[in-house]
Each structure stands twice: as C-alpha cells, then as structure tokens.
C-alpha cells in the first residue's frame, strides 16, 4: 500500500517533468532557451520513472540495468544539447535581442579581426587557422 503511494508520487513527478518540457517548448522565445526545456527536465523525469519502476517490480537484477539507463542518459543528454546549441549559435538561430550578456560574441569578433589582419582568408594555413575559420563560418553565415 505504502509502496503504491510512493510509486504513484514518483510517476506523477516524472510526468510533471514531461509537462514542464512541453510548456517550455511552447512558451520559451528562441531555440537555445527551448533547448533547456526540451532536454533538461527529462534528466530528473527519467530518474523518477526508473525509481518508480525499481520500487514496483522489486527485482534486484533489474536495478543495475536501470542505473545503466540513467547513467547513459546522463552521458548523452549534454552532448546532444551541446551539439544542437553550438550549431544553433553558429548558424545564428538565436535572438540576440533576448541576450543580456554575450561574451562569446566579443571573442568571435576579436578572432575575426585578428585573422583578417594576420592573413587574407585564402592564404591562411589550413591547419593553423582551422579553429578561427570555424568561428568565421559561424559569424559570416
């Protein structure tokens, strides 16, 4: 009886995290802030679901598998969030008017000026200048 109550609370908590993600996707203004809503609440949401599953089945051999599920989610979520966020920033899929501080923009601007001064783009060393070229790519498009 008690375990049923705990399991229901955990499941409802997990479902609320999905709801948070949904509301965030609809309400947040631009790509990067939506990324927060879409990826993050699920870390806690999945943890709550897996805890509920462990309690409900009460089977010990299942628990390492559930731990693995959560660990692999912990490892992969930030990577996908980073890749989408980085691509979004570089292709300017963000609203700069919503940013109060942008310290990356200053760095990119400095890098572009420096590369232009040091060498014309077509003469730049392909290996040395690669990182800066990447940045330039992000700024120019």
């Amino acid at each position: 009886m008690l375990s049923d109550v705990v399991v229901s609370i955990l499941l409802i908590g997990g479902a609320l995290m999905s709801l948070a993600a949904g509301i965030g996707l609809v309400r947040f203004p631009d790509l990067l802030s939506r990324m927060h809503a879409a990826t993050k609440p699920q870390v806690l949401g999945l943890l709550l679901f897996l805890l509920a599953l462990a309690l409900e089945t009460g089977s010990w051999p299942l628990i390492p598998l559930l731990v693995l599920c959560w660990l692999f989610q912990l490892l992969t979520t930030p990577v996908s969030a980073h890749m989408v966020g980085r691509a979004g920033y570089r292709t300017r899929h963000l609203r700069r008017d919503l940013l109060t501080i942008d310290e990356l923009d200053d760095v990119v601007a400095c890098a572009v000026v420096e590369v232009d001064r040091q060498a014309p783009p077509h003469e730049a060393d392909p290996v040395e200048g690669r990182e800066d070229h990447d940045r330039r790519g992000g700024v120019d498009h």
Binding site: L16, M17, L19, A20, I23, G24, R27, F28, P29, L32, S33, H36, A37, K40, P41, Y89, L98, L99, T100, I101, D102, E103, L104, D105
Partner: peptide
C-alpha cells in the same frame, strides 16, 4: 525551469 516556463515564458532574458 518549470516555474520559469509557466510564469515568465516569452519574457525570459538569457545570457551567454
């Protein structure tokens, strides 16, 4: 984040 999504939503200000 849940609370921000419900109360602030579109009026959110972010920073890098």
């Amino acid at each position: 984040v849940f609370w921000l999504a419900v109360t602030r939503g579109p009026a959110l200000r972010n920073a890098v």
